[in-house]
Design a protein around this nucleic acid. Structure first.
Lengths: 212, 212
DNA sequence: TGTTAAACGGAGGGTGCCTCCGTATCTTCG
DNA sequence: CGAAGATACGGAGGCACCCTCCGTTTAACA
C-alpha cells in the first residue's frame, strides 16, 4: 500500500502539540503587547525553545497570519452576510465598524491588517485575498446599486481603514476612528448634485472640543 | 536681563558643530531609511560617538522633531497662506496633498507626523501644536463658511491623514492616498439637503450589531 | 525493539539601544 | 598666555532581541 514514493507518515505528536502551544502563546502575547512583542517571549510562554518557534513559523508574519486567521475569516464571513442588507452603503459602514471592534480587542490584529495591505506583492495570500474579496463584494454591490462611486478599489479601502486603525494606542482612538470612518463612507457615496456649495444654516455641534 | 545670578557661558564651539553634524546626518539617514533607521548609523555618518548623539537628542523623537521642524513649519505656513483661498474646502484638499508630497520625498517625515499625532498627551509640543493649529484654522474657516461639517477635530483629521500615509512603502501608495483623501474631503463637505446626513449629537448610527 | 527521519532546544553571532564615566577640549579669568 | 574648571566627547559594556545552525532527543514504523 505504502510505497516509498508516498510519504504519508503520521505527523509527530510533539510537533502538533508544540505548534498549538506556540499559537496559543502568541495569541496572548500579541493581543496584549501588540505586533512588536518579542518572539522569544512567545517561545518562553509556550514552553518551547526559540528554534521550535522558528521552525513552525519561519517569519513573524507567518505567525501573525496563523494567529489571526480565524479573525480574518470572521470578518470575511460578516461581509458575506452583509451582502443581504438593504442598504449597501450601510452594510459597508457596519463592516468597517466591526473591523474597529476587532482591533480594539486584539491589539495584534493590526499586524494582520498590515500584512494584508502590504502583501499586495506575492506572499501571504490568505489574509490579503480574504479581506480584499470581502471588501470587494461590498463595494461592488454598492457601486452596482449606484449608491457609491466605483473608482475606489478594495485595496484602497483596506489601506485607508488600516491606516486609521494604526494609531490605536492613544486615549480616544476608537471614537476618533469611528468618526473618521463615517466621514469616509459619506465621501464614498455618490454625490447627489454636481458639486454645489450647499450651505447649512447652523453648523453641527462638534463632537470634540479643540484643546489648547 | 538675566545678569546677576545666572551667568550664561558661551556654548562650546564643538558642541554646536556636532549638533549640526548630527542633524545633517540624521536628515539623510531618515529620509532614505525611514524612521526605523539605526541611530548608530546616524552617529557614524555624522562622525561623532553614539554618546554625543544621545546627549544632544536624548530620545529618537527629539531627533525627529529637530530634523523635521523645518518641514512642519513649512506645512504650517502653507496653511496660513491657504486661509486666503476662495474655496475653503479646496484649501484643505490642497494642504493635504502637500502633506503627501512631503511624505513622498522624505520617508522620515511620517515619523514627525506620528509624533504629532501620538503626543496628544503632553510632551513634544512643537509639531503637535503647529500642525494642529494649521489644520484647525483650515477646518474652522470651512466650518464657519458652512461648507464643511464641524464635528471633526484637527486631531481626528491629522490622525486620518497620517494613517493613510503610513503605508508608504508599497508600489502605488501615493495615488492611492490621494484618491482616498479626495474621498475623505468629499465626506467632510456638508451634505446637500437630499439626505440629512449630518449627525448632530451622536457620531454613530443606531442599528449596529452589539459586541458579542 | 531497533532504525531512522523528524523535531527539539539553545548556544552563538549579529545588530541595535542606551548609560556611564574616564579623557579631551573649550571658555574664562587672573 | 596659561591654569582651572566647566563642558562635551567617545566608545566600551550591559541588555534585549533577531535568527541560524547543529548536536541531541524522540516519536513513528517495521
Amino acid at each position: 500500500m505504502d510505497d516509498h514514493t508516498d510519504q504519508t507518515r503520521k505527523p509527530r505528536a510533539d510537533a502538533v502539540r508544540n505548534r498549538e502551544r506556540v499559537l496559543e502563546a502568541a495569541k496572548t502575547v500579541f493581543n496584549a503587547g501588540g505586533p512588536e512583542a518579542s518572539l522569544e517571549a512567545v517561545a518562553k510562554r509556550a514552553g518551547v525553545g526559540i528554534g521550535t518557534l522558528y521552525r513552525h513559523f519561519p517569519t513573524r508574519e507567518d505567525l501573525f497570519e496563523a494567529v489571526y486567521r480565524r479573525e480574518v475569516e470572521q470578518l470575511s464571513e460578516l461581509a458575506e452576510q452583509l451582502k443581504n442588507a438593504k442598504d449597501p452603503v450601510d452594510a459597508l459602514r457596519r463592516w468597517l465598524r466591526s473591523g474597529v471592534e476587532f482591533v480594539a480587542t486584539k491589539k495584534g490584529m493590526v499586524a494582520a491588517l498590515a500584512l494584508a495591505v502590504q502583501s499586495g506583492s506575492e506572499l501571504h495570500a490568505f489574509s490579503f485575498e480574504r479581506l480584499t474579496k470581502a471588501i470587494g463584494s461590498l463595494l461592488d454591490r454598492a457601486a452596482a446599486a449606484g449608491a457609491m462611486r466605483a473608482d475606489v478599489s478594495p485595496e484602497d479601502l483596506l489601506r485607508a481603514f488600516f491606516g486609521m486603525c494604526y494609531m490605536h494606542d492613544q486615549p480616544g482612538w476608537q471614537s476618533s476612528v469611528l468618526r473618521m470612518l463615517d466621514v469616509f463612507v459619506d465621501g464614498l457615496r455618490v454625490q447627489p448634485a454636481g458639486k454645489p456649495k450647499v450651505r447649512l444654516p447652523k453648523p453641527a455641534k462638534p463632537a470634540v472640543k479643540r484643546k489648547r
